[in-house]
């Protein structure tokens, strides 16, 4: 499996060939609680790194999901619409949100690796 990279907004990214898959981290889903609704970006939308492009709603509140890197949305995980709880049960797998064709692949290098992200979570706790 390709290496996971992490943003400070608690998204993960993994590259598979020329396509990046994006989701939210286990830490993020725990903080959110039970997810009851997800709004996914439109196919073909161009997003910039740090741009809000999806929404995840728990029983309690709505939160934005940000694009960790820039690119064009080429696929969304439509299965989440009927089963948003997958984001809680399998955040790094079946609970992925969308796929991007990166427009600035160098941005990936600015994201954190697993060890750095875990330090980041511990330090912000």
């Amino acid at each position: 499996m390709a290496e996971l990279k992490f943003s400070k907004d608690h998204e993960w990214v993994t590259m598979d060939g020329v396509v990046a898959t994006i989701g939210i981290t286990d830490h993020a889903q725990q903080a959110l609680g039970d997810v009851v609704f997800v709004e996914l970006p439109e196919l073909g939308r161009e997003v910039k790194a740090g741009e809000a492009c999806a929404v995840v709603e728990s029983v309690k509140a709505a939160s934005d999901v940000y694009a960790p890197i820039s690119g064009r949305v080429v696929e969304v995980n439509a299965a989440l619409t009927d089963n948003p709880g997958t984001i809680n049960s399998d955040p790094a797998g079946e609970g992925w949100f969308f796929r991007l064709e990166p427009s600035a692949p160098a941005e990936l290098a600015e994201l954190m690796d697993d060890a750095a992200y875990h330090r980041f979570v511990e330090e912000s706790a």
């Binding site: 609680g33 039970d34 728990s58 029983v59 309690k60």
Partner: peptide, 12 residues
Amino acid sequence: PVQYPLGILGEH
């Protein structure tokens, strides 16, 4: 406490 380990949905 906003929730316990069971979570808001489960507690509800």
